[in-house]
Computed example of a mutant assay.
Amino acid sequence: MAIRRASLAAAAILPVGGPSGVPGQNGRDGTNGRDGVVRSIAGVSKPDLTLVDIGAAPAVPSRFLIDGGATVTPQDVYTSAFPGVALSDTSQAVLDVAPGDQRDNLSAVAGYVRTRSGGAGFVGKGNAVALFGCVQIAANYSAGWGGNILITDHTERAVSNGTGRIATGFELDFNIMSPNTHVTGISIGGNSLSQPTDANGFLVNSLGTGIKWNAGFWSLDGCARYALVAGVLEISGKNIGSQPILLQYFDGSGVKQTSQIQAAGGFAVISGAPNGLKLSFGNVGLDPGYVFTVGGVQVVAGRKTGWTAGSGTPNRGSFNADYTQTMGASYSQAQIQALQNQLLATQQRLLALESDLRAHGLIGA
């Protein structure tokens, strides 16, 4: 788990000074004096902002833009989450919201874009990005993060009893006015040349040692037509199944096992579950005309109707299907009675079968 963040190339800071960010140089949209105090940004007076030198990072001056009324530094904020870790960022911004401040949408760093290029198709040119970063991992055993946000709900790393605090990692709002606009909440992809041995689109980690999320993913009521869509395993072909969904569990020996759900061959296929499918509650429902099959052979279909229930005493006890009765040249009363008894036993056996088939719903009125 990362405890450091990727460097923040804060484009919003650039208009304060020249390209080098050195106090005293006029920027394209901002001016400042040699004392480092920002006089204006894009023609708007900002006397409460100060550009402060906090030392040197490798090859690039480290600076941060700080609100003149702030009582904390970036290091103060970060130390509250991870004590003992020193910052070494290219650019920093800190926002200190005072007690009782009722303003909305206060931001430490923000980007604003208006695009009128007219060249953006489904995958086109002329696209615009409010905040952008690029990371190059140029040496073995190095790691890079495109973005990393750390949120803490306390001023120190200690258990607290604070109330009414809300921590939201990312909120993406889309105010769409045209039904013809293509909307994508989050898109992950790339232009790779090699297939990585380990590549996961989304990874849910713990909130801490033994501390869990209530749900790894939750689609709220009425918010989506489909909660999840798993596409085909390949982009084209014949008899290609869907991308499978894997479910893992520990068996009685503590060994992790994996079951798989996949659409293939016209079926929803469950595999890797040695005990098969189990329903803890509820019923299995089939629409009319559908049946249960084993190896492609029908074994159970819909109810056969037109049956009138039999009467009498069913026999689910012992039954000798091999019983025979020896008959003499002249029938005796005992022989006829034995045949009658066997016929009665057969009738009772048939009634038992009928009753059970009716109870299972395979036959009925």
Rank of each mutant, 00 (worst) to 15 (best):
M1V: 04
A2G: 00
I3F: 09
A6S: 11
A9F: 00
P15G: 05
G17P: 00
P19A: 05
V22G: 01
P23C: 03
G27A: 10
T31N: 10
G33E: 14
G33N: 13
R39F: 03
S40H: 01
G43I: 05
G43V: 01
S45P: 09
K46Y: 03
A56L: 12
P61V: 13
G68Y: 03
V72T: 07
P74W: 00
T79P: 11
F82H: 14
F82T: 12
G84Q: 10
D89R: 12
D104M: 08
D104V: 12
L106R: 11
A108T: 08
Y112T: 10
R116P: 01
G121Q: 03
F122C: 00
K125A: 08
G126F: 11
A128D: 11
L131Q: 07
G133V: 02
V135K: 03
Q136E: 12
G146T: 12
G147S: 08
N148Y: 13
L150F: 14
V159G: 15
L172I: 06
D173H: 07
F174H: 13
A199Y: 07
N205G: 10
G208L: 06
K212Q: 09
G216L: 02
V232M: 10
L233S: 10
K238G: 11
K238I: 06
L246N: 11
F250Q: 15
V255G: 06
I261P: 00
G265P: 12
G285T: 09
F292E: 07
T293V: 13
G296I: 11
V299T: 07
S311Q: 09
N315G: 01
D322N: 10
Y323H: 10
A329T: 14
A334W: 04
A334D: 14
A338L: 14
N341I: 08
N341E: 15
L343Q: 14
R349E: 11
D356K: 13
A359W: 03
